[in-house]
Design a protein around this nucleic acid. Structure first.
Lengths: 349, 349
DNA sequence: CTGAAAGCGCTAACAG
DNA sequence: CTGTTAGCGCTTTCAG
C-alpha cells in the first residue's frame, strides 16, 4: 500500500541517536559523546567527521537520557511561580530572571497562580514532577511546609516578594515597612494630619508590614489613630474604588491617601476623579503603576525594584544550585520614593 | 571523618526509585508502575500498599526515564517565545496559554527575545535542545526557515502576532489592515482630512499591513498622500516623541494622529502634551495601553485581543500535538475600536 | 586518544 | 490481576 511506509526504512520523523551518528562517522559511540560534550582528547580529524555526521542527521542530544545517567542530575531548569503574569512588577521580575538563567544556560518554566491559594499546591506539584533544579516563588498560601520534603531531596527554593512560612529558604523582599513609613513621612512633611491607609488583606505578611510601617510613622508624629482611617482587605480596583468613595464622604475626610498596592491605587485614582477631588487630595502609592507619569496629577509612588529583586533571587538560586549551603537568609531591597505630583498636594481647608 | 558521609548508607538526598517502592511494598516493579500510572487491573489491597510505600519514600516518578522509554515521546512541555515579557499584550497572551497548558497537564517554558533578532536563533535552539513538544512564538527575524528541519522531526510551531516566513505553520494574528482602516475611517468620520501615520519599521509585516490598511482608507476618501505624513521606523517612546514634535511644527500640521503601536502611542501622548495640543489633536492608537482610560483625554484605541489570540494559539498547538496534520493556516482575529475620547476630538481651524 | 560494557529509572511486550 | 525481561539514549567505568 502506498500509504504504508516501508518498515525497513528509518522513520524520518525520528530523531537521530548518538549511535547513528557514530555509525555514520565510522567511530565509536563514546567518541561521539566526547565530541558533543566538548571533552578533550579527541583528534581534530575525528572531531570534524563526527560534527559533520551530526549536522547531516540534524542530531540533537537527548537531554533525558543524559540526565538519567549522569552523576550530577542537573537539568538546568528552574521554575518561576508568580502571583499573576499580567502585572508590570512580575513582568520585570520574569525578565531579569530569564536573563540570569540564560547566562547559566538554564531555562525557566513560568506559571501564574492568579493569586489563588488553591492552585498553588497543584502548580508546585506539577513543577516538581518535572524535577526542576529549583523554584523561585511568590506564595499565596499561608504556609509552605509542604515543600520541606522536596527541599530535603535537593530542590532549591527562593521566595520572592513574600517571606516563607514553615520552611527555611532564602527570601528577597522589598523593604515594605520602611517604604510605607517613607510615604507617611512624605505626606506629613507636606502638612497632612488626616491620612488614610488603604491596603490588601492583613493576612498577607507584606501587607501587614506596610500597614505597620505607615501607622507607626503616623503615631510617631502624634497623629491619633482615630484620625487615621484604615481600610484593609482590598484586593482589586473595584473594592478600592468603593472604599475611597465611602471614606471621602465622611464628615471629616482625609486630606491624603496612602494606597498600599497597585490595583488599590488605580481604584483610588478613579474614585478621586469621580469625586472631582483628584487635584486637592494627596496620594502616594506603594508600587509603581504603568504610565503613572502621564496621569494628571502624576502619581507619587514608593517604587519597588523588581529588577534588583529578580537579579538577587536568580543569584541566590544559581549559587544554591552550585552548592552554596549557607543558612537561609532574608534579603531586603530598599524602595525609592518617586516624586511626581500627587503626593505633594497640600491639605485643603 | 565526621564530614564524610557513610558510603554504605543510602543518601537521603537521593530520590526513591520505583524499584525501592516495589521492594518496600513487597510487589514487583511493574505493579508499582501500574499504580503510579493509574492503569487498571491492580487489586485494591496492593494499590493501597504501593501508595503507602510511595508516600513514605516521597516517591516522585522520574519523568526523564519515562520519556526515554515510552512510545509517544511526549513531554507535555511547550515553549513560548515572545518579543518582550514586560508588555501588557504579552502578559495576557502568556496567561491564557498557561491556562490552556495547565488543562492539558503541560508546562510552559517562557522566554523573551527583547526584540533582538540576534537572540532569536539562540533561544530557539536552547528550547529545542530540551525537546519540547512545540513552540509558540513571535518572531523578530525576517526568515524562520531554520525551523524546517525541526519541524520534520516532529516539533510543532505556532506563530503568534506575526506570520512566519520560510516555514509553513499555523499563525494567529490580529486583523491589522482592517484595524488600521477602522482607525482611519473613525478619524475621517470625525471630520479630519489631515491625518498622520506613525509606525514601526516597515520590514515588520504587521507594521506594513497597518500602514497599508490606514493609507488605503485615507486615499479611498480622496485625501492626497501629500497631505498625509507617514513616519516609519519608530521603535520606542523617544523616537516617536521626536517624530511627533517635528510633524506638529510643520506649516500645516495634521489634525489627527494614528499611532500604529504601543510605545509609539506613549511617545506621541508625551509630545502632544508638551506642545499643549493634547486636547485639540485627535489620536487613535493601535493596541490598547494600560490605564489609557485614566488619561486626559482618555485614549481611543484599536484594541487587539491577546486572550483570544492566545487561546487560539494554544488550541492549535495542542491539536497539532494530538495529531492534527491539516495544512497550516493563518487565523485572523478581529480588532475592536474602543472609543474613549482622544479619537473624537474634532479638527480645529 | 578511542571504544566496549554496564546501567540510570522507567515502560513495552510478553508471560504467567 | 501480577511479574519478568528487554531496552530507550545516554554517561560512566574501565580497558585498550
Amino acid at each position: 500500500m502506498a500509504t504504508m511506509s516501508d518498515p525497513e526504512r528509518p522513520d524520518s520523523s525520528h530523531r537521530a541517536t548518538m549511535k547513528q551518528v557514530a555509525t555514520l562517522a565510522g567511530v565509536g559511540l563514546k567518541t561521539v559523546s566526547r565530541v558533543i560534550n566538548d571533552e578533550p582528547y579527541v583528534s581534530q580529524e575525528i572531531t570534524g567527521r563526527v560534527r559533520a555526521a551530526a549536522e547531516q542527521l540534524d542530531y540533537l542530544p537527548n537531554p533525558h537520557a543524559g540526565v538519567l545517567r549522569s552523576k550530577a542530575k542537573r537539568h538546568l531548569t528552574i521554575g518561576l511561580l508568580v502571583g499573576s503574569v499580567d502585572n508590570p512588577f512580575v513582568g520585570a521580575l520574569h525578565r531579569v530572571i530569564e536573563e540570569a538563567a540564560h547566562e547559566h544556560d538554564a531555562a525557566v518554566f513560568a506559571s501564574s497562580l492568579d493569586d489563588d491559594p488553591h492552585r498553588e499546591r497543584g502548580i508546585v506539584q506539577a513543577f516538581l514532577r518535572r524535577r526542576l533544579d529549583g523554584l523561585i516563588l511568590t506564595t499565596v498560601t499561608p504556609n509552605q511546609s509542604y515543600l520541606v520534603p522536596e527541599q530535603r531531596h535537593g530542590t532549591q527554593f527562593v521566595f520572592v516578594d513574600r517571606p516563607p512560612t514553615g520552611v527555611e529558604a532564602d527570601a528577597i523582599i522589598s523593604d515594605n515597612a520602611e517604604g510605607a513609613a517613607a510615604a507617611a513621612r512624605h505626606l506629613i512633611a507636606h502638612g497632612h494630619r488626616r491620612l488614610a491607609y488603604l491596603g490588601d488583606r492583613h493576612e498577607i505578611k507584606t501587607a501587614a508590614l506596610r500597614r505597620e510601617g505607615f501607622l507607626g510613622e503616623v503615631s510617631r508624629e502624634g497623629i491619633l489613630a482615630a484620625d487615621t482611617p484604615v481600610v484593609e482587605g482590598l484586593h482589586d480596583e473595584e473594592s478600592s474604588y468603593r472604599a475611597v468613595l465611602e471614606i471621602m464622604r465622611r464628615p471629616e475626610p482625609p486630606t491624603a491617601l496612602f494606597t498600599a498596592q497597585n490595583l488599590v491605587t488605580i481604584g483610588a485614582i478613579r474614585a478621586l476623579r469621580d469625586l472631582g477631588v483628584q487635584r486637592s487630595t494627596a496620594l502616594v502609592s506603594f508600587d509603581d503603576i504603568p504610565l503613572s507619569g502621564l496621569l494628571d496629577p502624576a502619581i507619587t509612588v514608593i517604587a519597588q525594584h523588581p529588577d534588583r529583586i529578580g537579579a538577587l533571587a536568580a543569584k541566590r538560586m544559581f549559587d544554591r544550585i552550585a552548592g552554596d549551603d549557607s543558612p537561609a537568609r532574608e534579603f531586603v531591597v530598599p524602595t525609592t520614593l518617586i516624586v511626581r505630583g500627587s503626593g505633594e498636594i497640600p491639605p485643603h481647608d
